[in-house]
């Protein structure tokens, strides 16, 4: 195996081996709720990545001063701050997007991935390493959401990014856009991943 720079390894950790959506199955609520279309999924993923990276950076900067007795409370306040920031940013960028994502932007606060990263990584590592690690996780989360959103939009609406793919003859498979579809598609992706993981392990 070729030796890659350490930062790359660290980054790919979250994108692939520890992918929060497909491997760890963390932070599922927004994953399923907003993944009805590719664009919603992508925006939600980017918003989460922003919160993840900025709160991990701040926590890592402050890690030497944050008293360990009140660390969780401090982390939650910091995360909630960045979520509020991103909430306003999205409102400023596009109201349509804001309406589509609804309360799920604010629910980023309780996304277990962020608190998990803050506690397990950012509180122990210097800012640069924390940012790279958080970025990896964020990209992995965005990829997962995007994969889910794309499948649901293509099957459920016959479109991708709002562009119709199959013409008028296509009868959309609407259940894919409804709540059960979210569970089924995510289950399908997990199945695919565990299939490949098993094959690699067996080989």
């Amino acid at each position: 195996m070729k030796t890659r720079p350490l930062a790359w390894e660290e980054f790919m950790e979250g994108v692939w081996r520890q992918n929060p959506v497909f491997v760890m199955a963390l932070g599922m609520c927004p994953v399923l709720a907003v993944s009805v279309s590719a664009i919603n999924a992508l925006s939600m993923g980017l918003a989460t990545t922003f919160v993840l990276v900025s709160s991990c950076a701040l926590i890592s900067l402050l890690r030497k001063w944050i008293p360990k007795e009140v660390r969780i409370a401090t982390y939650i306040v910091i995360i909630a701050t960045f979520v509020t920031v991103v909430d306003y940013l999205i409102q400023a960028i596009s109201l349509t997007l804001y309406e589509a994502l609804g309360a799920f932007i604010q629910l980023i606060v309780v996304n277990c991935i962020i608190l998990g990263r803050a506690e397990a990584h950012a509180s122990k590592n210097p800012p640069l390493a924390a940012i790279i690690n958080a970025l990896g996780m964020g990209v992995g989360f965005t990829l997962g959401l995007f994969a889910l959103g794309s499948v649901r939009e293509i099957l459920g609406a016959g479109a991708w990014f709002g562009i119709s793919l199959f013409g008028d003859g296509f009868q959309p498979w609407v259940v894919m856009l409804l709540p059960p579809g979210g569970f089924f598609v995510l289950g399908g992706w997990l199945l695919l991943f565990s299939f490949f993981a098993r094959r690699r392990a067996g080989a």
């Binding site: 259940v175 709540p179 059960p180 579809g181 569970f183 089924f184 995510l186 289950g187 399908g188 565990s194």
Partner: peptide, 22 residues
Amino acid sequence: PAVVQGTALSLMLAGILSLSFM
């Protein structure tokens, strides 16, 4: 089957439950 065990199976079950709740 070993490949469906774990979260994938739970999600499929949840999908069926969700379908009936519709």
